[in-house]
Design a protein around this nucleic acid. Structure first.
Lengths: 144, 144
DNA sequence: TTTAAATCGGACATATTTGTCCTAATAAAA
DNA sequence: TTTTATTAGGACAAATATGTCCGATTTAAA
């Protein structure tokens, strides 16, 4: 559904949000450990998220990544997905046709539109804050 | 959502079904033209579909691909997807966790389960016959 | 029996995604 | 001011997905 990069991106953002809620800035190394992702690859993804203002990066010693409290409430999964994978998940034709639309639909156009709309709705209505909810109390996990 | 191979596979199967309903066996070349796909790559995919008994292949001159009428009614999109992409679309964790399940879920496990279930239901209940319905009368398309 | 039209299947080629390595830049702390 | 811990970013490497080529095999028709 999403690229690996995007999966890591969501997990990383969620972990940063979790620690930011505690007022703690986290390093790339810690993030990669906690979400079980390749360090250098994760670095690239975090750069991208930083450029797209999903996360804030602070250079230098004692630097790291963080997300402001307002961002944790405001940022939705859809924004992370868009920053990394673009809009293909929402827009692309299920059968790969370039010009598939309501006027010239593929045989499953309507059915895919419905499922994609559900997916979009979910992504657009799930905030980072909601993502962190179960993590502290061991209800949900970001690795394994 | 699906691999390119899978997209071509669905389109190819649908086109073969369409022509089989007219009692016409079709060649690889014709299929690739009609679904706008690379010929040799499509050949590989058709081999796979043939091995998985989605399509029947006939070797030699006047050979080609066809699907029996009973197959056109019986075969669901889910079987084509499974033959080419496996069960990742249904089963895999949305955030890429290997051991994500109801007991140790990722933060969006439940939400993804719902969307995947909708997708699975759709794929398991859409037959090749249904796929061909709008094609003849220009209501739906397999290329562009 | 030969020829031609077709699929089969292995080897190869290219493109994309995923992942690594190293140096530069930055900033806090010694 | 130097050292150390950090992110930034470019170049490279590996893995996977996508796509091509060609000879072998099969079968209908000449």
């Amino acid at each position: 559904m999403f690229s690996k990069a995007c999966e890591y991106g969501i997990r990383a953002s969620t972990y940063i949000a979790l620690r930011s809620l505690e007022g703690r800035r986290v390093s790339l190394k810690e993030i990669a450990e906690e979400i079980d992702s390749p360090v250098a690859f994760t670095a690239k993804i975090l750069q991208q998220l930083s450029k797209n203002q999903i996360v804030d990066s602070v250079k230098g010693a004692a630097g790291g990544f963080e997300i402001q409290r307002s961002g944790i409430d405001r940022i939705k999964l859809s924004e992370i997905v868009y920053a990394i994978d673009g809009d293909n998940v929402y827009m692309g034709c299920g059968l790969g046709l370039k010009k598939c639309n309501a006027n010239k639909p593929c045989p499953v156009h309507d059915k895919f539109v419905q499922i994609r709309n559900d997916l979009r709705y979910m992504l657009e209505n799930t905030s980072l804050y909601e993502m962190t909810a179960g993590l502290e109390i061991g209800l949900t996990y970001l690795k394994r």
